[in-house]
Computed example of a mutant assay.
Amino acid sequence: MLFDPPLQPARLIARYKRFLADVVTPAGETFTLHCANTGAMTGCATPGDTVWYSTSTSLTRKYPHSWELTETQTGDWICVNTLRANQLVREALALQLIPELSGYDRCQAEIKYGSEKSRIDFLLQAEGRRNCYIEVKSVTLLQQGKGYFPDAVTLRGQKHLRELSTVAQAGHRAVLLFTVLHSGIEDVSPARHIDAAYAEQLVQAHKSGVELLAYQASLSTSGMLINKSLPIAL
Rank of each mutant, 00 (worst) to 15 (best):
A168T: 12
V89R: 00
R18K: 15
F178L: 08
P190I: 00
A85F: 05
Q108N: 06
D151C: 05
R156S: 09
T30P: 15
L212C: 12
A174C: 08
S58R: 08
L12D: 07
L101A: 06
H160N: 15
L97I: 02
G184W: 14
I120G: 01
I111T: 03
K17N: 14
V153Q: 12
R18Q: 13
I134F: 01
F178N: 11
D121P: 00
S56P: 03
P6H: 07
G147N: 13
I232H: 12
G223K: 04
V203K: 09
L155R: 15
S115Q: 13
N37E: 06
C44H: 07
E200G: 00
P47C: 10
P6N: 03
L124C: 01
A214Q: 09
L212H: 11
I111M: 06
T72H: 11
P64F: 04
E135P: 12
L69W: 13
T38S: 14
A92F: 05
H206N: 10
A191D: 07
G184K: 11
L141G: 01
V80L: 11
L124I: 05
V51P: 14
T25W: 14
F122M: 00
T72E: 04
L176V: 00
T60A: 02
Y198K: 04
D22W: 08
S66N: 13
A92N: 06
L212V: 05
I120W: 00
T140W: 02
L88C: 00
E110Q: 03
Q108C: 01
T42R: 13
L202K: 04
A205Y: 07
D49F: 14
C132E: 02
G43T: 03
R162P: 11
P26N: 10
G147W: 10
R15K: 13
N227C: 14
V210T: 11
E116W: 11
K146R: 15
L7I: 02
T30M: 13
T82M: 07
T32K: 07
T25E: 08
V153G: 05
V180P: 09
V136Y: 02
V89P: 01
P150T: 10
V180C: 11
T154K: 07
R15P: 15
V23Y: 15
A94L: 04
F3W: 13
H172V: 08
E127F: 08
R119F: 05
D187M: 13
A214W: 07
L124Q: 02
Y215W: 15
V175F: 09
M1F: 05
K146A: 13
H206I: 03
Q73Y: 10
G147K: 10
E127T: 02
A199Q: 04
P9D: 04
K117N: 06
R156Q: 08
K137N: 08
L93N: 06
A196F: 01
F149E: 08
L123G: 00
K117L: 06
L88F: 00
L230F: 14
R106H: 12
Y104E: 08
